[in-house]
Amino acid sequence: MDRKLALVTGASAGIGAAFARIFASHGYDVALTARRSDRLERLAEDIRLRHGVETLVLPADLARPEAPGEILAGLEAHGRAVDALVNNAGYSPGGFTETAWEEQQAALQVMLVSVCELTHRVLPRMVEERFGRIVNVASLAGLLPGAAGNTLYAATKSFLIRFSQSLHLENQAHGVHVSALCPGFTYSEFHDVSGARERVTAATPEWLWQGADEVAAVGYEAVEAGRALAVPGAPNKAIAAAVRLMPEEWTLSLVANQGGRFRKL
């Protein structure tokens, strides 16, 4: 098979689906994984018809520790290996003490452990082939302290940023590009899943929102260019720059005030 293959997690909607379409538009075959097989099948058919590439559907729940190995075994059974990896699956598990530990543990498995395992499993071949693209979808929240109710989410995204930067430094000489994508407010199902859509929409000005296609395009351009960190959108870039310059206590106060606005709505 001459075409390279991109594996996208959390591909059933939003940023993940947008990444799948972008890689396909650049000539990659795509492997799609998420929990909802019906949505994956529809997306796979649309991509095949639009771009004429091969699409593989591998339904899996990354909260299961066995899932990363099963996904890669499924690709191997089709005679394929990963040339580009987009670790996009993620969600907010809610307040740290307001939900059962099992829910927090599942979130860590999805957003941290599975990311590391998939990356660890595919990276050696990328280094050997002297070509690889890895995008870890982090968040602007990873550059800030976590607001109340988002403790674990912000912490995992902060990890993804540093993890990506370190991998970038380790592997750039081998033709492997690693980027952390840090979107802000994005039109997707993220806030619907957490039940915060109405509150977040009411508290956030429209000019801060971006579309999933726009965000994914920034991520694709960054990893192709070999940039370790990508923050899409001028407002988000300004926030990221301000956070670097502000004293830590100011940042904590700002996050606390914003979190209070969300809770009052």
Rank of each mutant, 00 (worst) to 15 (best):
G27V: 06
E206M: 07
K4T: 01
S92C: 12
N150D: 08
E170A: 08
R80Q: 04
G259R: 02
A89N: 00
A196V: 00
P124R: 14
F190L: 07
L254K: 08
D61A: 05
S12R: 06
Q210E: 15
T119K: 03
A77H: 06
R121Y: 10
H120W: 13
R121T: 15
E224S: 07
S37M: 13
F23L: 05
A67P: 01
R125G: 13
R121D: 14
I134A: 12
A34M: 03
R162A: 15
G95D: 15
H26N: 09
P93N: 09
Y220R: 08
R244G: 06
E189Q: 05
A20V: 03
L208D: 09
L254R: 04
A154K: 10
E128F: 09
R21T: 10
W207G: 01
K264V: 11
A17Q: 12
T119Y: 02
A13H: 14
P232E: 06
P235C: 03
G132V: 02
L72A: 07
I22C: 02
D46H: 04
Q210S: 15
G175E: 12
S92I: 06
G16C: 00
D38T: 12
R199H: 06
L118P: 05
S164P: 07
L152C: 07
R21I: 04
T151Y: 09
G16T: 00
H168G: 02
A24H: 04
G149W: 12
A17P: 05
E214S: 10
L245W: 13
E41I: 08
Q109V: 03
A141E: 13
V115T: 11
L167N: 09
S188H: 02
A44Y: 00
A203M: 10
L245T: 10
L85M: 06
A173V: 09
L160Y: 00
Q109E: 08
C116A: 13
L254N: 02
R162I: 10
G175H: 11
L229F: 14
A234P: 04
N136Y: 11
A20H: 11
L75E: 10
R48W: 03
V218M: 02
F185H: 06
E76Q: 14
E248K: 04
Q104R: 10
A154W: 15
V113W: 08
D213A: 12
E198I: 01
